[in-house]
């Protein structure tokens, strides 16, 4: 078997997710190649070649692959896929955008968000926002898979794989890049943060969300919210953690003034440690929290901030 891993790039550099995808590829077994595609990606290719367990890094460095637009990236993968039994990418917005195009053009199904490998053709993946785990077997000749990186460790970077150029250049007249605005926050991004602190309806209003800022600063945390807080207009929708928002699994999740509706729990219950702060000691959130603190969040939050 041979596996192609599509490298994740962040502002032209190799993203951390790729080292996790390589571990998923190792669990499948076989030779592992990495495809680095973009424009001006030599540094990312060098970093990919240092990942342990990698056979070969293939580099498609061309303006048509800049920003990894779906149309040329899909076509590139189609051109390379015949050499492989599996094509993997992280379940990042790039992997999710590109891989289904490859699957459709090769007339195979895709397995999304794989979080466990049973064998080369059998995988575990979450369905219903992680409220159930499906074991699925694929009899397709080519397995196209996106990997939920929280399910796999990362390989080290003491390797020295060979790097070879891919000459395939495709045409793209259908889509063009206009602009990109990456959040210039000092805080980590919600999906990848090690610590997340979220507020719910109990916060009372949007202004009170500022009470979370100081704690988030001290913990290097991202700030999230429950759907109830979003629906009440306290904060924008991109902060929403839950089944219809972001799914997070940080090392530490602090839920403040969140009752624990199913739809919220679906988005955070895979966190390693959950802390709940709520004045209602019957709130369902306490049933999933490792540490619950019953009390008035307007007293607890300033105290917590000062003592951290």
């Amino acid at each position: 078997m041979s596996i192609l891993v599509l490298a994740d790039l962040h502002e032209g550099q190799l993203a951390g997710a790729t080292a996790h995808v390589v571990v998923a590829a190792q669990a499948i077994g076989g030779d592992i190649d990495i495809l680095v595609a973009g424009e001006g990606v030599q540094a990312a290719a060098d970093a990919a070649a240092r990942l342990d367990g990698v056979n070969k890094v293939r580099v498609a460095d061309n303006a048509v692959y800049a920003h990894q637009l779906a149309e040329p990236m899909g076509a590139l993968l189609v051109a390379l896929a015949d050499d492989y039994s599996h094509v993997l990418a992280s379940a990042s917005t790039t992997g999710k955008n590109v891989l289904p195009r490859l699957a459709a053009l090769k007339d195979v199904s895709q397995l999304s968000d794989v979080l466990g490998v049973e064998s080369a053709d059998t995988f575990l993946r979450p369905i219903y926002a992680g409220n159930a785990i499906a074991t699925v077997k694929s009899d397709d000749a080519l397995k196209v898979i996106t990997v939920r990186t929280t399910g796999f460790d990362a390989v080290g970077s003491s390797g020295s794989a060979t790097i070879e150029a891919v000459d395939t250049v495709v045409e793209n007249t259908q889509s063009s890049f206009v602009k990109q605005e990456l959040a210039q926050s000092d805080r980590p991004e919600l999906g990848g943060a090690k610590v997340v602190i979220s507020g719910g309806r109990g916060m009372g209003n949007g202004e009170n969300f500022k009470l979370l800022n100081g704690i988030a600063d001290k913990l290097g945390a991202a700030i999230g919210a429950s759907r109830a807080a979003v629906d009440a207009g306290f904060v924008p929708n991109d902060m929403q953690v839950g089944q219809t928002g972001k799914i997070v699994a940080p090392d530490l999740y602090i839920a403040v003034g969140i009752s624990g509706a199913i739809q919220h729990l679906a988005g955070m219950k895979d966190s390693k440690v959950i802390v709940a702060i709520n004045k209602d000691d019957e709130a369902p959130i306490f049933q999933v929290a490792d540490y619950g603190l019953v009390g008035d969040l307007f007293e607890i939050l300033p105290e917590l901030e000062s003592k951290l």
Binding site: G130, I133, A134, V288, Y291, G292, I300, L304
Partner: peptide
């Protein structure tokens, strides 16, 4: 060509403990 072999509930998360104060919470964490 994808077969659903089985569906399971994820590992049940057990409720933990209630702490009495911010100090105890920080100590536990």
């Amino acid at each position: 060509k994808v077969t659903l072999l089985k569906v399971e509930s994820p590992a049940e998360r057990k409720g933990g403990i209630k702490v009495a104060s911010v100090d105890e919470l920080i100590d536990k964490l």
